[in-house]
Simulated scan of single mutants.
Amino acid sequence: MDNLPNVFTGDAIEAELVTECDARDLGLARCVQLLRDAGLRPTRQRVDLGQLLFLNGHRHVTAELLFEEATAANMRLSLATVYNTLNQFTEAGLLRRIAADGLKSFFDTDTSVHPHFYLEGEDILVDVSEGLSFTKMPEALPGHDIVRLDVVVHLRKAK
């Protein structure tokens, strides 16, 4: 055993490994707490998908894209589990569903009210960076409240 090289020698390498493990553990703890705060039990599937969604900055994902990412990360999940989890996260207020077209929904990790561009033919949803304002909102129907406003501006490549 003494003849084998020790790849963990040196303070810099050891510190880097510890920092990497600490960051992973911290991310896991943050994700578990986020789920608990939203009233969700932190199951393995929810935590795995939550880490992909919430620890990588602001994102717009489809169920298919998230499934591909989970598969690439060796997470053993079905597409149905991904759909169910996204729906649970949305119901708990952790995600916002954006119906960009009649067939596909995106899930936005930024749940604030903000408009989007949908790039038709490219299946990409991006936030509109400049402000958008409305001078008048319609009155809600009697006995109803306006819950939210979704604005999706569809774009197509210019010819």
Rank of each mutant, 00 (worst) to 15 (best):
S105K: 08
A72E: 14
F54W: 04
L49C: 02
L119E: 12
N84P: 05
P42R: 00
L55K: 11
T43H: 04
T111H: 07
R41V: 14
A99T: 03
V126P: 01
D101K: 05
L52E: 10
T71Q: 13
F117Y: 14
P42I: 10
D101M: 09
T111F: 04
R59V: 08
T71C: 12
R96T: 08
S133H: 09
Q51Y: 06
L103Y: 09
E91H: 08
L125A: 02
L95R: 05
A72L: 14
L35H: 11
F134Q: 08
L77M: 08
L132I: 09
R46D: 07
G39A: 10
L34R: 05
E120Q: 14
R46W: 10
K104S: 13
T111Y: 01
L79H: 12
A70W: 06
F89T: 02
R44V: 13
D108C: 08
N84T: 06
L95W: 01
Y118K: 03
A100D: 07
A92R: 00
R59P: 07
T90I: 07
G131F: 09
Q88T: 13
I98W: 08
F107T: 00
G50C: 10
D48S: 14
G39T: 03
Y118H: 05
R76L: 13
N56M: 04
G131L: 14
F89G: 01
T90W: 01
A80W: 00
